[in-house]
Simulated scan of single mutants.
Amino acid sequence: MNESQAGQLFIVATPIGNLADFSARAIEVLKSVDVIAAEDTRHSKYLLQHYAIQTSTISLHEHNEQQRSDALCQRLLAGESVALISDAGTPLISDPGYRLVTTVRDAGIRVTPVPGCCALITALSASGLASDRFSFEGFLPAKSSARKQVMESLKSDARTLIFYESPRRLLAALEDAVLIFGEQRQACLARELTKLHETIETRALVDLIDWVKADDNQQRGECVLLIEGSQNEATADEQEVSRLLKILLTELPVKKAAAMVANITGGSKNEAYQLALKLQQKN
């Protein structure tokens, strides 16, 4: 097969739950390469055994990626073929692999994607939220203050927002989302996608919280949280004023921060002052 020529790095998507979602091409590639770089070799062995893939594996995770990248690049330069897989889904999407791909491409080696499952796209497709424009924001911060700061920076974004979230922090994240986005902003919880207990529920944020609280099972498993984009998108100037105020308010009093921002942007000092008061109250 052309895809398994020597000296190629294959980025291979794996199932996110249902093993039947694995493509024939992905299986063929994994059987034909010289080595498979896996995020967790112990986790991946069950998938490989299921499809009788006997290719040797080597670990590549966030703690050893730079070292492994250099070693794998040398193997590729020597003519070997390598496949990269994550525990589930498409590698590099909130998973290791960026350093490896960058290192390999910088060395002039071909990188070939073998597409397949991706939790964020799977969730978006069934959520009922707008899919023409969206922004994937990865995992939200663990601490509430940092989480709210991230959400605040996205409050006026008109795109559908997509996050990965730990089930242990799901309820806290939803409560913060209500504070920032408002009770009636539509949101979707997509949990345990393609698995036996898959749930995809879209409601107003305030109702989604009640729904999650009423069933402890909704706080288990892998979660994707999608939040409807703003219907009143802030202009670029308004976003810049907000961004500058957030920076200056960490060091300056409200009045002085507002005056400086108005001077920098050429906007209204009073409007900057009112926004600064709101930002200060939220913090």
Rank of each mutant, 00 (worst) to 15 (best):
T102K: 14
H50S: 11
A78E: 08
H50P: 01
V150K: 15
H50N: 05
V114M: 09
E62Q: 14
Q49K: 09
V111D: 08
T102E: 14
E39C: 05
E137K: 12
S144I: 11
H63K: 06
I58M: 14
D95C: 03
S44M: 11
S144L: 13
D132I: 10
F139N: 05
Y51S: 00
A38R: 02
V29C: 03
L100E: 07
Y51K: 00
A52P: 00
L84E: 07
L124P: 04
S86I: 11
P96C: 04
T55A: 02
H63D: 07
P113A: 07
S59K: 04
A52E: 12
S32D: 08
A71M: 05
F139D: 05
K155S: 03
I109L: 15
L140N: 11
G128V: 04
L47R: 08
K148Y: 12
K45R: 14
S81A: 15
G97N: 05
P91L: 04
S144Q: 15
Y46K: 11
S156N: 05
V101S: 10
R105M: 08
S81E: 05
Q67D: 07
S156Q: 09
D40H: 05
D70I: 15
S44H: 12
S144W: 03
E80S: 15
C118E: 08
K45I: 14
I58E: 14
D157A: 05
Y98T: 07
A123K: 04
H61Q: 01
K31P: 01
M151T: 07
V35Y: 02
A123I: 10
E137L: 13
A83G: 02
S144A: 15
Y51T: 00
S144K: 15
D132A: 10
L120R: 03
R110N: 04
A142Q: 02
V35K: 03
V150S: 14
L30K: 00
V111I: 06
V101I: 09
P91R: 01
Y98P: 01
D40T: 06
D87F: 13
L76W: 04
G97Y: 07
D40P: 04
L47A: 07
L154A: 12
N64T: 06
D106Y: 13
S145Q: 14
T90F: 11
Q49D: 11
L60V: 10
S81C: 09
S44N: 11
L92E: 05
D87K: 13
V35A: 01
Q54W: 00
D34T: 05
I121C: 12
E65C: 05
S32Y: 06
A146R: 14
P91Y: 01
S86N: 10
S153V: 11
L154D: 12
E152D: 14
L47E: 02
I93G: 07
T122Y: 08
Q54M: 06
L72C: 13
R42Q: 10
M151W: 10
S94V: 07
H43S: 07
P113D: 06
D34N: 14
T41C: 01
R110M: 04
V33Y: 03
R68W: 00
S131Y: 06
Q66L: 14
Y98S: 12
Q67K: 10
K155L: 02
M151H: 04
Q149K: 13
D106K: 15
I53G: 00
Y46L: 13
